[in-house]
């Protein structure tokens, strides 16, 4: 039986339709913060995963984009496809490879390459009351400078020390635990947040270096801009308004680079000192 769920992802209405119960369970679980009950208008994007005699087909708006013989691979691919499609086609936003969280009127953006520890730090900060915008993508509305949340469950890789430290267990709905041993952790999400109305904004470029001491250095405006926009997926969408706001916002008092090796140590420093 085909099941359909509706989501609001990056301000775009999406439907996710599948006749595979495992896939439905999985996406219903990791996207639960963004599921919407009623679909009042036509979805901008229709994602479909169809199981036909153990061949798995992925469609976007009824166009075939992938064919798989393994359901786990198909689920993993569909998750990547959804994010990539929405980020690249969000006409009114830019997307940075960065996580972000808010607490009260404070905003922190954590930028870094893959495996720089964004998700780990997001998880640790949410344990201290910070609300998750996203652990991976910072989408910014180019007209309003609002950050658009994408509070998917946080992905924790199997070799992450947090797994033992916090006794993280695989959920039964998490099929990708069987794929690559990953875990997902639910965190409380936040609403849209305007970076211009936050009382304090912190931009932190993460630089994970094994065995290093934690060391912060301030970033000047140019370095901060290069760091934040260097990871931008769809920079052609940026507006003069947003660029001017970023220039005025970013500088030594708001932007820093940190070398670290222990995420827990860094999280403690952030919570006790830097994000106060």
């Amino acid at each position: 039986m085909t099941k359909i769920r509706y989501y609001l992802l990056f301000d775009q209405y999406c439907s996710l339709q599948t006749n595979n119960d495992d896939a439905d369970l999985h996406f219903g679980n990791i996207y639960q913060n963004m599921e919407i009950n009623q679909q009042s208008c036509q979805p901008n994007w229709s994602f479909q995963l169809y199981d036909q005699n153990r061949l798995y087909y992925i469609f976007i708006n009824n166009c075939l984009v992938g064919e798989f013989t393994d359901i786990l691979l198909a689920i993993w691919q569909l998750d990547c496809i959804i994010v990539r499609q929405l980020v690249r086609n969000g006409s009114n936003m830019i997307a940075l490879h960065a996580g972000w969280l808010v607490k009260d009127d404070k905003l922190v953006i954590l930028a870094g390459a893959g495996n720089s520890g964004k998700s780990t730090l997001c998880y640790l900060l949410t344990r201290q009351g910070w609300l998750l915008g996203s652990d991976e993508i910072t989408a910014i509305d180019v007209e309003t400078a609002e950050l658009i949340p994408f509070p998917r469950k946080i992905l924790i890789k199997p070799d992450n020390q947090l797994v033992l430290r916090y006794k993280i267990k695989p959920e039964s709905q998490n099929l990708l635990y069987l794929f690559d041993g990953r875990f997902y952790e639910q965190c409380q999400g936040t609403k849209k947040t305007n970076m211009l109305t936050c009382n304090k904004v912190h931009f932190i470029a993460l630089d994970y270096q094994p065995l290093s001491e934690t060391a912060f250095s301030q970033l000047d405006t140019l370095s901060a801009l290069q760091s934040i926009l260097g990871s931008c997926v769809n920079i052609k969408n940026i507006s003069s308004y947003l660029f001017e706001r970023l220039v005025s916002l970013l500088g030594p008092s708001t932007a820093s680079h940190v070398i670290y090796s222990s995420a827990e140590n860094l999280a403690n420093i952030l919570i006790e000192e830097k994000l106060q």
């Binding site: 290069q226 926009l229 931008c232 920079i235 660029f243 005025s248 500088g251």
Partner: peptide, 22 residues
Amino acid sequence: LLLAEKDEFLYVLDVDLGRVHS
């Protein structure tokens, strides 16, 4: 090119290349 001024510096974003200059 997008331009913004701050503290006597001019910041320029080359939208085509995604590069920022000051």
